[in-house]
């Protein structure tokens, strides 16, 4: 019995180490893709200097950021200011524990996996508010307030759209949701929920066109204006990890998770399909970011309350009725 307990502990430790490593790797890949794709869209070459086609640039940037001085502004709330980047980083790492990369590659399959992810990832708002408040800077505080307002409003359509899928699968377990899609992927059954989820996830991750919390032309960098060195890079890591989490949820709930054309070692190589789908969605997010201008704050709120929430509610109701009837 004790042996088994130790093994489970060992498994968890290995999983956490791998997940943290993955978060850093993900930031490198996403940072590179973001800069290269934005360059392509603007018809310029982008990173070219460090390594072939600049692939080592992000690594060098990482070293540079580690070496930088950590500056705490005068009159800042030192405790909150230091705590905020850590608190922003941890909640985006935890959801990766329950994401089913393949039928066996998963740190832990909770029965309440989806609720766990959503509960943990909403903590991110706290970190942003702390960073904005602790910086003693009006732009930081504006950015943080916008972020909180935006995240709280967009969580509603996001949850409602996910709930429509849950009504069909009858389980919150991530693995169970994937298995329920072995016949048909849910984005075909629930296209409206899928679109609503994608739009809401843009707002949840503070990505363009909903990047008001860090609108650089108005608020310099928003809530992380005063951060330097690793404080700043933890926020960036968290942003990219957050993108990965929302895309993984979309992949798990709507795009059939690790289902795909069967590969050898299917129990593990399903992860390839999972990553292809998740990164496909992330590339779509980058594409959108470099296409659309930023929305105004009233447009953002109007869109959420006038369009997303009513549509999500109607969709949920119709789903409930159909599930009951069929």
């Amino acid at each position: 019995m004790e042996m088994a307990g130790n093994l489970i502990l060992l498994r968890m430790v290995i999983a956490v180490v791998l997940i943290v490593a993955f978060v850093f790797l993900n930031a490198l890949i996403m940072g590179y893709l973001e800069r290269k794709l934005s360059a392509r869209i603007q018809r310029r070459p982008g990173l070219m200097e460090v390594g072939p086609h600049g692939i080592l640039q992000l690594l060098i940037d990482g070293f540079k950021l580690i070496g930088k001085q950590l500056i705490i502004p005068k009159d800042a709330d030192r405790f909150l200011f230091r705590l905020a980047p850590l608190l922003s980083f941890v909640p985006v790492v935890l959801p990766l524990m329950v994401i089913p990369f393949s039928s066996k590659l998963q740190a832990r399959d909770f029965d309440i996996g989806l609720i766990f992810i959503l509960a943990i990832s909403s903590l991110n708002v706290m970190a942003i508010l702390m960073a904005g408040w602790g910086s003693n800077n009006k732009y930081s505080l504006f950015g943080a307030m916008r972020s909180v307002a935006q995240n709280i409003s967009y969580e509603i359509p996001m949850l409602l759209s996910l709930l429509a899928v849950i009504l069909m699968t009858n389980t919150f377990s991530m693995q169970g949701i994937v298995q329920a899609q072995h016949k048909i992927w849910f984005f075909l059954v629930q296209p409206i929920a899928f679109v609503i989820y994608i739009v809401a996830s843009f707002a949840e991750t503070n990505r363009a066109p909903f990047d008001l919390p860090e609108a650089e032309s108005e608020l310099t960098a928003g809530y992380h204006t005063e951060y330097s060195g690793m404080g700043f890079s933890l926020f960036m890591l968290a942003e990219y990890a957050n993108m990965f989490v929302v895309c993984s949820i979309a992949t798990t709930l709507f795009l059939g998770g690790w289902h795909g054309i069967p590969l050898p070692f299917g129990e593990y190589s399903g992860a390839i399909w999972f990553l292809i789908k998740a990164y496909g969605l992330m590339i779509f997010m980058i594409w959108v970011r470099w296409t659309y201008p930023r929305t105004r704050f009233d447009q953002l709120m109007n869109f959420c309350w006038k369009y997303l929430i009513p549509f999500a509610l109607v969709n949920l109701l119709v789903t409930a009725v159909l599930v009951k009837l069929l």
Binding site: L37, R43, R44, P45, W287, W290
Partner: peptide
């Protein structure tokens, strides 16, 4: 934006 992705680059190294 998708179309511009596949157009030749206009800047010079």
């Amino acid at each position: 934006t998708l179309r511009t992705c596949f157009l030749p680059q206009v800047t010079v190294h």
